[in-house]
Design a binder for these strands. Structure first.
Lengths: 210, 210
DNA sequence: ACCTGAACACCGTTCAAGT
DNA sequence: ACCTGAACACCGTTCAAGT
């Protein structure tokens, strides 16, 4: 059935299926052949819509970045509130798709939504009076913290098997129970870190010469 | 030449070669067959020393974690200074091997050096008087920030091609020059973030009931 | 115990062929 | 323009065979 009158595929359909696959089974499960099967199509068909698998992955990543709200930068009350709101929106978008974070954390590359995000954050900080050099560093360090917090659950990274800890790691005696509170631990750590970070930055802002 | 009298391989030799390969060409370049060739051995030979490729990768990751200094936790003067020294040592170890960070950021799993590290940090905070719940969150948020900062250079993530930014991303007009200052930007962002984070945490520590 | 070659079920990608 | 099957050079892993 070559060349159907109405195309079987579209970039949107491919990206959606790829994201679903990565969400459900991880980055390693995304193969062009597997994805094609999922779309009821033969492997090479995808190459009519994307030049390479990396190209496709770029589109998947940028579709996740597109979910980040940037509205708070349109008419920011103050930089701290805008940054906090943006950080929470950013983290929520990434936490919904943790398996793509390693790719997206490599930097914006040429992905439009990633560049738009970087532009908005930097612009807000400079408009608020931060020197350009400092604004760059703050954009970077916020990204460090947010991507790091979405890269994988802290709590889920510890084995539930209590036997792992006994004797060798005395302070981790209760670590096997982290899984129960997985969500609360991760969310609490993010909120604590975000507020601490903003407090620390506010101290520096107050010291800025004007 | 099967079964030489002195073994051709050892776990150490394999891990060292794998790390060198990942450092030089990235995670994607690490294949069992390629690694075997590098070691002048046939592909399946590796399976005498590691059960699977994932097993081998675990050993590679833990060898990097082993480079992190934990000595500052032996007799810590104060939690803040110890945490700062540890964070810098941790980041330096990861920044030397950025390509393995996505793997290691998934959590400690059953890797001994990763568990030892988590144990030392948590123990230091609890000994300093932090409540256990807070100590857990601080351990998590520090890891978020440190792994995020080592996951990929912020500066290097922006294309050097100035044409990418023109018109569409007005605030990023100078982003193409980030590459020149790559190291300074990344280091400056890490230091600013670390100090801000610790300042913010110190504020909370001062408010702790005793 | 530790290495080998052969084999299996997979990959990403190219390309000529179809309509 | 958009899909197909065949083909190429790769994967991770198993296994029987060697010493």
């Amino acid at each position: 059935m070559p060349r159907p009158r109405t195309p079987l595929l579209s970039r949107e359909r491919i990206v959606a299926a790829a994201l679903a696959l990565v969400d459900a089974e991880g980055l390693a499960a995304l193969s062009t052949r597997r994805l094609a099967t999922e779309l009821s199509v033969s492997g090479p068909s995808l190459y009519n819509h994307f030049a390479t698998k990396d190209d496709l992955l770029d589109a998947v990543v940028d579709s996740v970045m597109g979910e980040v709200d940037l509205g708070m930068f349109d008419a920011p009350e103050d930089w701290r509130a805008a940054l906090a709101a943006w950080a929470r929106s950013y983290r929520a978008a990434l936490a919904a798709h943790p398996n793509v974070v390693p790719v997206l954390a490599q930097g914006p590359g040429r992905r439009p939504n990633a560049l738009r995000l970087a532009d908005a954050v930097f612009g807000c900080l400079v408009d608020a009076g931060w020197p350009r050099g400092q604004a760059t560093r703050i954009g970077a360090l916020m990204r460090y913290f947010i991507t790091g917090s979405a890269l994988g659950s802290f709590a889920a990274g510890f084995p539930e098997d209590a036997g792992v800890y006994a004797a060798d790691y005395p302070h981790l005696a209760d670590a096997h129970r982290l899984a129960e509170h997985r969500r609360a631990v991760d969310e609490g750590a993010f909120e604590t870190g975000l507020e601490a970070l903003l407090d620390g930055l506010a101290l520096r802002y107050a010291r800025l010469p004007d």
